[in-house]
Write a protein that binds this DNA or RNA. Structure first.
Lengths: 175, 175, 175, 175
DNA sequence: CATGAATGAGAGTTCATTCAT
DNA sequence: GATGAATGAACTCTCATTCAT
């Protein structure tokens, strides 16, 4: 979180963990493998959160809103996030790394798509193209994430964007 | 383009320019200042392109399409782009750098907003909220750009997304 | 055999022995002591071989030839030999180590000298200076050993050299 | 000379040369390349000495004796010699290195062979097989060199061996 | 006895940066 | 202006060695 991926050194990490440098090397041969592992753990965590929400019997629009609010939190405090490290990691990445990141993205798209379809059935949503809409939402989030790191993003803007995204899914008479 | 910002060294640049290291230091004290200058030049170039299109008397939807196609080209060949360097540069950046990047982004938003308004007048578009729509478009592009670097993006996906974005602007009966 | 003395580490040895590093340290405090022991064992082995040959009632020239053939085998496959390790060990060595190696060398000289004297008596050999001749033979062998490691040595050359050495011991009319 | 090849570090050399480590790396990427160069220079030096002796119109036996005395000097002070480094270097060596060392050895053999042939003509020597004899002499020298490093060698022994080698070349009535 | 986690010293290596020429 | 040799800081990585278990 503090240094991102490119700038962090094994020394930094060893010191932060209060472990010797040699000791750290017993577990990870480089920052790359280490980050990979950390990302995997984090990924597992957020999956759990998602599943919990789904099994809580909330309405689709409610769950989607919760998801977007969760994203908002991260957008407001990008420096408490591993996103910067993830991006830098991805930039150097081989195909294997790209596959890992792609999978993360597409899982999110699928879940949102699923929510939209459910909402279409309950009448909460009226979206002719759930897959494209879901992809679009995720790309906007991705765009906001990177914006948060590169130029900063205001809370107002995030809120407006969330409303805009949700608005696009609602039936016309509801707008 | 080859190394991004974090990995490139003054040595790399000096060699690529066939200049001595000491000589390079006469012009730039670090890769940071050097990249800043390169980005500024590039920015000026793309502004010119935009202005030229506007003064060519094309319809708003046509210009927007041209703009999106231009973006598509970059998305298909991210390694021939300075985006990676720009992102890495932004990640380390101080407020000054952020302001520079934000300005670039907002100029683009303004132009797109302007095009949408023009399109609303000519009847090509029917968009109740030009500013939000323009912001949304730019965020999607930003999302696709970062995706192109982190996980790769297929031409099909880009095309579908472009259609989706334009589709959102068209009058209902035109869909 | 694989790494020589300078390059081998306690880690290598522990792994090759499928023992823990800590466990290895219970027996040997360093590669030096360990090698010393291995060399001692090997030395004892080759002494036994020699003694066996002597008590087999072969003629002196026969025994000498057997000895030289044994050396030849080692010269042809220096990488299956501890010679490299021995040399590297000797290079770092204190007086104690030198004494050990010198003893090995001089024992061999004595045996060869003894064989030459026996051959002189039976008339197989005609060598006015058995001690010098024996030293000479051992030095040539030493020279070939080091050559085998440093530049390689062909079988033909070894054969020729063996013939040359034996030839120098034979009575003039036998040549 | 002090550390041999395996133990010497770039740091040692940098300090001995009163140069910074980074500075040393400007010239040599590793101790290997550095030693290679030093050996080449030394080799050139000793070639010159040899050539000078040949053109001084001394008798073959005289030149040979001078050569052997030169070798003796080195044998008496092996620690002022690069032999140890050369041996260790050779031990790790690839084919290229072996070829270099072999060439050195064979050049010496050729010169000695040449001297023996000249001596045969002048009647100073009576050696039926100059090539084998020359090889033998060089192997003995090699044997003494390695002995000097591994177990030490006394001046008396060297003298005796030199006499023995020369003796083998002289006509029978001269012995 | 044996293990293996942990430490810490030290080697290799690369560059940002300076400066005499 | 321009060069490029030189420096020195910092980082990676590997093991000899120790020690609690």
């Amino acid at each position: 979180m503090e240094r991102g991926f490119k700038d962090v050194t094994m020394k930094d990490i060893a010191e932060a963990c209060q472990i010797s440098r040699g000791g750290l090397y017993l577990y990870y041969p480089s920052t790359k493998e280490l980050l990979r592992d950390v990302l995997r753990m984090e990924s597992a965590d957020s999956d759990d959160t998602f599943q919990a929400a789904l099994s809580d019997n909330l309405t689709p629009s409610r769950i989607l809103l919760l998801f977007l609010r969760e994203q908002k939190k991260e957008l407001m405090h990008p420096e408490q996030t591993l996103n910067l490290a993830l991006y830098e990691y991805a930039f150097t990445g081989q195909e294997e790394d790209k596959a890992f990141i792609k999978k993360r993205f597409q899982q999110a798209v699928q879940i949102i798509e699923h929510l939209i379809r459910m909402g279409n059935e309950t009448g909460e949503f009226d979206c002719p193209n759930p897959h494209d809409a879901a992809t679009d939402i995720m790309l906007v989030i991705e765009g906001m994430k990177i914006s948060a790191h590169t130029m900063g993003i205001s809370e107002r803007k995030v809120d407006r964007e969330i409303r805009y995204l949700i608005g696009g899914l609602l039936p016309v008479e509801a707008e």
